[in-house]
Amino acid sequence: MTHMSILQARSIEKHFTEGRGESVAVLKGIDFAVERGEIVSLEGPSGSGKTTFLSILGCILTPTTGDVVVDGVRVEAKKLNAIRKKSLGFVFQQFNLFPSLTALENVEYALNVKGMRGSEARAEAERVIEAVGLGDRQAFLPRDLSGGQKQRVAIARALAGSAPILLADEPTANLDSVVGTQVLEMFRDLAKKENRALVIVTHDPKVRAVADRVVRIHDGRLAA
């Protein structure tokens, strides 16, 4: 039986067309795989293509050529939403919480979008909010939370449900050093505990301490 990684990318190329009609290759043939329970730090200089690659892994962009297989499903344009809903959780640099919803509601709404409703969604949201240590802040609006607490809510939102793959884009960029370390350690512990794959795009060297593997992108290619 052939081993199947939870997330695989094969020969990924991505070209963008610039204003004058010129095609610019941002990704130039990347092969990549992540296993369940594995934490990968994806590093690289600005403009190297790591956020574009993360967008492709996250089924937000489609590659120009190459294949992505998420949780056994080959990604196609018409399946992007469904795959994101079922298999992926995101954590963003800017947190991207809904300002009109409380911490708990931010998590519960994500579950609603994924199809979970009512008391089941509420109970799951409470579970993950407790898990990220914000049980006493669940009724707070984002504006009343610190940066670290907002990122914990974002992590709770990504963890909510049963998405086997978590993708994080510079999750510590807007946090101070101490809070950033705390958030990373918490994120790692929860991902490991629940056997989820975690890909973190970062410039932050602290991420290396929690990662099982570091992958570097340079000029659109994986560096050795």
Partner: peptide, 13 residues
Amino acid sequence: IKEFGTVKAIGGG
């Protein structure tokens, strides 16, 4: 718009 982008990113259509 960013909130709506987030809705899409987390699986909403």
